[in-house]
Design a protein around this nucleic acid. Structure first.
Lengths: 115, 115
DNA sequence: GTGGGTGGTTACCCTGAGGTGAGCGAGCAG
DNA sequence: CTGCTCGCTCACCTCAGGGTAACCACCCAC
């Protein structure tokens, strides 16, 4: 965990770097949710991504924040309020994922295999 | 409940489907190599992707073939000759990965935080 | 005081993707 | 005969990413 595991072999091309960033099990869903509804709070984000646990959500948010994808705005209030949103890089990453999403949609709808 | 999202079309959006296809550790590198040099043989492909083992390469090739990404042409000769290339879907997937690669390249070169 | 809600943290466990190494069946160079 | 190439396959093992659950500090409503 820590701050993004120091990968031994570094990245062969930019795609590995991106894969490293979105390699987590829920990262793309978090990106999805934050792109659609910026400024989500922790609990709301958890409800937005069904099945994820607090630990994993917190860990993924920290990794995404360390990667400069997610901006974390913490208000010193009571009860504590923390809002998450995408940075410019996160928005561009989300846009870069769009063709992949289109491919997946087309591929899944067309092939429709995978029992 | 132990394993969230068993296998079936639990894909929330097309991105998960694509992530499922390219989720392996070496899949993108295999796609890369096959896109640049179509018709690679097993051994050549292994040398093209340094660090991968035969078992993992074979397993990934089978998954990619099952996903309709890779075409496997096996010639009944001695010594056995098998050539791998991308299908149309594989080529389109590779093109869909281009923006992601560009993002990763830009992100890595811009941030340059990773050792 | 008790319960609920906030946003986390800590400790432990467990599955499965991936790594390791060996072997096979055929042919050919030496 | 020996050893090498070729395209895998099998059996075993490691390790880290993720799952489970309890807990913390704080405050409000009851």
């Amino acid at each position: 965990m820590t701050t993004t595991v120091p990968r031994p072999g570094a990245h062969v091309c930019g795609i590995d770097a991106a894969m490293d960033v979105i390699g987590g099990k829920w990262k793309v869903l978090i990106l999805w949710a934050l792109a659609e509804r910026p400024g989500l709070r922790f609990g709301a984000l958890r409800r937005q991504v069904p099945g994820i646990t607090e630990k994993v959500l917190a860990a993924h948010l920290r990794e995404l924040e360390a990667d400069g994808i997610v901006h974390r705005e913490s208000y010193e209030e009571v009860p504590p309020r923390v809002e998450y949103s995408l940075t410019a890089a996160g928005l561009r990453l989300n846009e870069a994922l769009a063709p992949l999403g289109a491919w997946g949609r087309e591929h899944v709808l067309d092939g429709a295999r995978r029992p």
